[in-house]
């Protein structure tokens, strides 16, 4: 793409002024693309997700962070129709998504990637990409039998795929099986494939996990690129460095709830976030625990005797 900006060197441009009022859990946004209300998902006795109210701002990069088991991936699955909540309503772009199956959610323009990459191993890289194309005539059983009815569309799709692959530096691999790609390249392929449908909202589940540092920078640039092209990005990530670098807005989850929201720099100073990540007793010195000291003394004493 000729109009896409050159790889960034300095700090990315942050979008600000996304929220209305105090930055607190459930704060209203100026222009929300996703709105959740009272979404709750339990697995037996465990409440995985319990979100009272959450809005995701449009045309911004929102990071969803939180310790392991905070319910981030479960929330992802609920948003994309891969899982059903026990209660609650949520909408995308004004359309309610309750009970809408995952493939229809994707058709509406909300595309996701997976934490464990799902490259279609025994399809070529190019076929992987073409599969992402929307509204393909040849995907109808009867039209499929008449190649002339879908050939033109397929050719256009192929051009678009090659253009995208070139942007992700995968065009040299287009005829290889996706199985032959490295883990990081598969992440790139999955992201590129998601973009084939020109989505409005891209949801990335841990895009950096397992990607080597050399690729990280280009992947970050790609994510920032999506924003300049008018898409909204929601991503789950553990790497705070990356969150601070590219996110415009951060939502922090812990034990299924949203515990904090705000711009990256402010949110990382928030006491609730520090507690969620490090535990609320993180500044208590464990060495002062008297029973522990006694045990160590006893052990030392034993050593002396032998």
């Amino acid at each position: 793409m000729s109009n896409s900006p050159a790889p960034r060197r300095g700090a990315p441009v942050k979008t600000t002024g996304l929220h209305i009022g105090e930055a607190e859990p459930g704060v209203a946004k100026v222009d929300p693309i996703v709105v959740l209300d009272g979404v709750k998902r339990t697995f037996g006795g465990l409440t995985a997700v319990d979100v009272e109210h959450l809005e995701i701002p449009r045309n911004a990069i929102t990071a969803l962070i939180g310790p392991n088991g905070a319910g981030k991936t479960t929330l992802f699955n609920l948003l994309t129709g891969f899982d059903k909540p026990n209660a609650g309503t949520w909408s995308f772009d004004g359309q309610t998504l309750a009970g809408v199956p995952s493939f229809k959610v994707a058709k509406m323009g909300q595309v996701r990637t997976f934490q464990l990459t799902k490259a279609l191993a025994l399809l070529s890289v190019l076929d992987n990409m073409k599969l992402g194309g929307k509204d393909q005539k040849g995907e109808n059983l009867f039209r499929a039998l008449v190649p002339s009815s879908w050939r033109d569309q397929d050719r256009a799709l192929e051009e678009k795929a090659i253009e995208l692959l070139a942007r992700f530096k995968l065009d040299g691999k287009k005829d290889d099986y996706a199985a032959s790609l490295s883990g990081g390249q598969r992440k790139l392929l999955e992201m590129a494939r998601a973009l084939m449908s020109d989505p409005a909202l891209v949801m990335l589940d841990e895009p950096m996990a397992g990607v080597n540092p050399a690729l990280t920078q280009s992947l970050l640039d790609h994510i920032l690129d999506l924003k300049t092209q008018g898409m909204t990005v929601l991503f789950v990530e553990h790497d705070m460095q990356m969150v601070r670098h590219i996110a415009d807005w951060v939502v922090v989850m812990a034990e299924g709830r949203v515990v904090a929201e705000g711009a990256p720099r402010e949110v990382m100073q928030n006491q609730a976030v520090i507690d969620a990540y490090l535990g609320s007793h993180h500044d208590t010195d464990l060495g002062e625990d008297p029973t522990r000291v006694d045990t160590i003394k006893e052990l030392l004493h034993d050593d002396d005797r032998t």
Partner: peptide
């Protein structure tokens, strides 16, 4: 042969590899 070289065939082969991925791309698996 006609079916499998068409986009229809591409979708079913995708399903063979990973149906959740195909679902996430908006196909009625």
């Amino acid at each position: 042969w006609l079916l499998m070289r068409s986009p229809w065939g591409r979708v079913v082969k995708g399903i063979r590899e990973d149906e959740d991925a195909v679902r996430a791309l908006g196909k009625n698996v």
